[in-house]
Design a protein around this nucleic acid. Sequence first.
DNA 1: TAGTGGTCTAGACCACAAA
DNA 2: TTGTGGTCTAGACCACTAG
Lengths: 241, 241
Amino acid sequence: MLQRTPSLTEQTKSYIKARILNDEFENGRIPSETILADQLQVSRTTIRDALSRLENEGAIYRKQGAGTFVNEPGLQIKSRLDEIWSYEAMLEAHGYTPSVRLLSVNVEDADEETAVSLNLAPTDQVLVVKKLFLEDEEPVILTHNIIPVNLLAGEYSDEALLQPVYEFLWGNGRQRLSYYLSEIIPIIVSDELSGILHIPPQTPLITFSEIGYNSDNQPILKSKSGFRDDLVRLRLIRRRQ
Amino acid sequence: MLQRTPSLTEQTKSYIKARILNDEFENGRIPSETILADQLQVSRTTIRDALSRLENEGAIYRKQGAGTFVNEPGLQIKSRLDEIWSYEAMLEAHGYTPSVRLLSVNVEDADEETAVSLNLAPTDQVLVVKKLFLEDEEPVILTHNIIPVNLLAGEYSDEALLQPVYEFLWGNGRQRLSYYLSEIIPIIVSDELSGILHIPPQTPLITFSEIGYNSDNQPILKSKSGFRDDLVRLRLIRRRQ
DNA sequence: TAGTGGTCTAGACCACAAA
DNA sequence: TTGTGGTCTAGACCACTAG
């Protein structure tokens, strides 16, 4: 895979983030932008960009006239809804060491709903992949990905399918997954789901129903996921706009 | 209420947003940053800041080397989870004309869980306000706000309590609500809730459990809300970090 | 190759908080 | 009053896309 030196802003962000996690700032007070710019030998703009990203992540907060500070409650969020990208990474952030199991792989005709949401012709086929993420043999997340076959090049090994879906799409289709539009839907688990996720029937469950888009804003993926709410609690930061 | 001229960046953002909603850009192509800067007589930095905010909102997307474009799917999101601030505004975005009903107002001793999350002494009291948001006599959202009494000044009228909670906190306590940390929890409606929200028992429901913080990062509000999922579907954009 | 967005700089002035 | 973060400018150079 090609690599490039991260931007100064990104390096600055990582540097400050590391110092925060290392608890290097007394009373949670981060040095002023001018001082940081001087220390790191970059412009204040670069520092400000880096701090803005950290603020967006909830790692710090800024008060005009007063200073910049570490945001303890924000640091403790392990599964920010808007930042979930790979489920493995999310589970690792929870302190788990997850494993992935491939439940089924099928090529099918797209149903009408899928065809509409992915801009497919009625005759187009889709690859349907069901995966289960487990922590220590305990199921945590069930996913269900639907990918148009015409986006994919060549064969796909089980190994490739076990990767996060954005890596699979890049490796097997040169498609770059850019963002998801997600709906959050509460359901009551069916008997089938109840068996797969090891939870009692009639339990309430949160599901995601999502469309993934590439950098040209074309829909390239439909996805559904169900979460064991008792094992991963979904959180988010809601800010004044 | 005091007012101030919005920043150039904010004005630029509004201007471009209005032109987008007015469908003024052919093929969804937004003029280049240089051209916009020239037209509006501001620096390119100001234009870029404004475009960044619109990109964050999901209203546009940018492709290096190619240009900036209107993001149709992003524009259609009416209830972005991370942007919900007042429920009235959210319901209006759905095309409703909501009303608010005050269900109950009580001053109580804080229970232990509340005391811990709001940093209260065991003897501190809290104001508990239950409100129902309706569209045309149909209940949509039930909220339940818990506010430490020692943050509040003087008496509070029903009228004041009917305002969005951040306005009430500002008006009656000079507390500025800065952000929420929210947990998303699925439940099955109880019989009581079922009656209040006019939904059958045993329906799955999404609830928010939240702590609100002021600009000094102190917790000032505990809140629980339940949503009629059939009337307001919660959505969000998940981006690659 | 021309034109776009992405990164970065140096510096000015303002609004605000704290001593 | 001092120092902080917030806004804004003008301009340089780079990376990338598309004709």
